[in-house]
């Protein structure tokens, strides 16, 4: 049986833990709002890019000289898996769910006899993957102490992927990240970066009815497409990073909310035990005094 003093110490320590988790929850909530705004702000660019790309790519897809970024290099042997995770932990299953999905994919590819290479973005994913797949990791990007992820972070990642593709180091590239659905739900998503997945032109878009033929291109279509595809890759990476940032804060918020509530339950239980023990001690003392008096 724990002594009264032990219980008191225990209650105090749980209380201070609860204070920390509550503070973290509130910090995550405010960061989440900013991250969400960043995701929203990045949308117009990505959408325009998609529209233009979709209208351009349609005409070039079947031609022999189509850019490799669009149609791939015709092989499917070496896969590059880009795993985007958070820099920090304490955000529930956020990091491990991404890593788990990536590992599933890696194992699947291995069974099919493909070669797998891994590129990690974010410290947590690198740490988790290094344990079992350390020899497959070709590069890792980390942004310690970064407040707001932005274009400046997406660019080096995209450039590295491009450089590797041009050097023929892989054939297919896919990216894993958490799509932000809501505060309590983040969905692990895989997108294929190379060959590029060209979205269908949304019905009723501005370009509909105009058709491609009336477009004038300066310089020619192919040059523009060559210019556009690397940029599209950067935008895709950026979007994944932004969504990831928002998801991370959402996951942390709900994880810390749970932790705060658990700490509260723990405190209640401990306080009850503490009071019972205290009363038991008082009763014992009283019995001792009374029986002492009666003995006289």
């Amino acid at each position: 049986m724990a002594s009264l003093k032990d219980l008191r110490n225990r209650i105090n320590s749980v209380k201070s833990t609860q204070k920390i988790t509550r503070a973290m929850q509130m910090v995550a909530a405010s960061k989440l709002r900013r991250a969400q705004e960043a995701v929203e702000a990045g949308r117009p660019y990505a959408q325009r890019m998609e529209t233009v790309l979709a209208s351009l790519a349609g005409s070039l897809l079947d031609q022999p000289g189509a850019p490799g970024l669009l149609v791939g290099n015709g092989k499917d042997d070496v896969h590059l898996i880009v795993v985007a995770t958070a820099e920090r932990g304490l955000c529930g299953a956020f990091n491990s769910s991404i890593v788990r999905a990536a590992i599933q994919k890696i194992e699947l590819l291995k069974r099919q006899g493909k070669t797998v290479k891994i590129l990690t973005v974010g410290r947590k994913g690198a740490i988790q993957l290094r344990r079992n797949y350390g020899n497959l990791i070709v590069d890792s990007f980390e942004f310690p102490g970064l407040r707001q992820v932005g274009f400046a972070q997406a660019l080096p990642v995209a450039e590295r992927i491009l450089a590797m593709f041009e050097a023929g180091e892989f054939d297919v590239c896919s990216l894993f990240y958490n799509r932000f659905q809501s505060v309590i739900s983040q969905i692990v998503t895989e997108i294929q970066l190379i060959p590029a997945q060209i979205p269908e032109l949304p019905a009723g878009s501005l370009n509909e009815g105009l058709g491609l033929a009336v477009y004038e291109f300066e310089p020619d279509e192919e040059t523009i497409l060559r210019e556009l595809l690397p940029r599209n890759l950067t935008v895709q990476v950026l979007r994944a990073l932004l969504e990831n940032a928002a998801s991370e804060q959402g996951a942390r918020m709900s994880a810390m909310d749970n932790a705060t509530r658990n700490a509260g339950d723990l405190i209640n239980g401990l306080t009850l035990t503490y009071n019972r023990t205290r009363q038991a001690v008082i009763t014992t003392e009283l019995i001792e005094i009374i029986s002492g008096a009666e003995a006289l």
Partner: peptide, 19 residues
């Protein structure tokens, strides 16, 4: 400022994509 030269775009301009 297009790569192939500057251009002034006004209403009714021909549909165009340029770097």
């Amino acid at each position: 400022p297009g790569t192939e030269g500057d251009m002034t775009v006004m209403a009714g301009h021909m549909p165009l994509i340029s770097t």
